[in-house]
């Protein structure tokens, strides 16, 4: 553990401290505006009634589930290829947040599915792929915490994230294929390709809010990881000094 590894993270922490007030405030603002738009301003759907409002948290959560996994894969690639000291920490800090979004997408999808489909769960292609994605997140988190040596866990998780990333399109494709083979009698699409602007705006504002929330939380968590690494390095130095 030589100190030059932390020179770069030190600069990152200072940068993060400058970004955080802005990203945090904007996240609160966007989420509050999104909440107001989705609960009060947007109209009830002519088919789905007020249950359509669940979309304003469900769809952004599902988008974030995919986005965060992409971030983890990109960070893992730069950790393995360029040995960037921060990339590991970004992946590690993002995984629980992504898992949270994925769980949220599943749970709100289930709450939406009950009135629309009549059951809490259908083995629909989208729901099933998101469920698999949730397990990919859990595996990533479990692996990165499975070693006594933290950096070994981070690097193992990085390899797993890349293998997972290659497999995500294959899984998605195969689940789509499988679901067209076993199409349930009448499945109503939750979100069609055409969406009225009065519903699109709340959705977009909410999605921006989710993204800013992720950026803020991720910066805070990376800061924690940098501090934890410093703490480990310092206590190791203390042990060596005695």
């Amino acid at each position: 553990m030589n100190m030059h590894r932390f020179a770069n993270p030190g600069r990152f922490v200072r940068l993060a401290e400058r970004i955080l007030p802005w990203s945090g405030a904007l996240a609160v603002l966007a989420l509050a505006a999104g909440l107001y738009l989705s609960l009060f301003v947007s109209p009830a759907d002519y088919q789905q009634g007020d249950s359509v409002r669940i979309m304003y948290v469900h769809v952004p959560a599902a988008w974030m589930a995919l986005f965060v996994y992409t971030v983890i894969a990109a960070a893992s690639a730069s950790a393995l290829i360029w040995r960037h000291p921060l990339a590991d920490l970004v992946a590690r800090a993002s995984a629980p947040v992504g898992a949270g979004f994925t769980f949220l997408a599943l749970a709100t999808g289930s709450l939406w599915g009950k009135p629309m489909w009549g059951t809490w769960w259908v083995w629909d292609a989208r729901l099933t792929s998101v469920l698999v994605l949730f397990f990919l997140y859990l595996g990533h988190m479990a692996l990165s915490n499975a070693f006594d040596d933290q950096s070994r866990g981070n690097r193992a998780a990085a390899v797993l994230a890349l293998v997972g990333f290659v497999n995500v399109p294959i899984i998605k494709f195969s689940v789509d294929w499988w679901s067209t083979l076993h199409q349930p009698a009448s499945v109503m699409r939750l979100d069609g390709p055409t969406i009225h602007p009065s519903m699109l705006w709340p959705l977009l504002v909410m999605a921006v809010g989710f993204k800013l929330y992720y950026v803020s939380i991720m910066l805070l968590r990376v800061k924690s990881e940098v501090m934890a690494a410093r703490l480990r390095a310092r206590s190791m130095a203390a042990v060596e000094a005695t």
Partner: peptide, 10 residues
């Protein structure tokens, strides 16, 4: 509109 028990938990 009757969907409160689904919307609010979400």
């Amino acid at each position: 509109g009757g969907y409160g028990i689904f919307v609010w938990p979400a």
